[in-house]
Simulated scan of single mutants.
Amino acid sequence: METSTEKTAEKEMPLLKRLRSSVLPVKETDSAWIRTLKNSGFVLFAIMFGSVSLLLVTAIALVL
């Protein structure tokens, strides 16, 4: 269960950091190889998310 301090701290974090910690959280016990894979996976996720969002906005703009 989350406390109010955790919720406040989460609200103060930038959007990308909150998204990063929820999609592929990097733990201190992860090896360098796993951290690299998680970081590159998040970058690919962010690129795909941005591309799909841009395509949807473009499609909606062309229809209207």
Score class of each variant (00 low, 15 high):
M48L: 15
W33F: 06
S21A: 05
L54S: 15
S21M: 09
S4A: 09
E6F: 05
K11S: 06
S4F: 10
A32L: 12
L15P: 01
R35Y: 01
K27W: 14
S22F: 09
V63L: 15
T36E: 04
S40H: 12
L19P: 04
V23F: 14
A59Q: 05
K38F: 03
L44G: 12
G50R: 13
R20Q: 10
L16G: 03
P14W: 02
S22W: 09
L62A: 15
L64W: 07
T5M: 06
S4R: 07
L62H: 06
L56M: 09
R18S: 02
W33P: 00
F49G: 02
A9Q: 06
S51N: 06
M13F: 02
V43Q: 13
R18G: 02
S40Y: 11
E12W: 02
K7E: 04
F42C: 08
R18M: 04
L16W: 12
E2V: 09
A46W: 12
T8R: 06
W33L: 11
E6D: 08
P25L: 07
L44P: 04
T3Y: 01
V43R: 13
K7F: 02
T5N: 06
W33D: 06
L64R: 12
L19Y: 00
P14V: 03
L37D: 05
R20C: 04
A61M: 11
L62N: 13
S40I: 12
L55T: 07
G50Y: 13
S22Q: 12
S31Q: 02
V43E: 12
L64E: 10
R18F: 01
A46C: 05
G41M: 07
G41T: 14
T58P: 01
A9E: 04
T8P: 00
L19M: 02
S22K: 15
V63H: 14
I47F: 12
L56A: 01
R20Y: 10
I60V: 14
S31G: 12
I34A: 12
A46H: 08
T8L: 08
S22T: 11
S4P: 03
R35N: 08
L19S: 05
V23I: 14
V63G: 09
L37C: 03
L64N: 10
A61W: 05
N39L: 13
K7Q: 10
T58W: 13
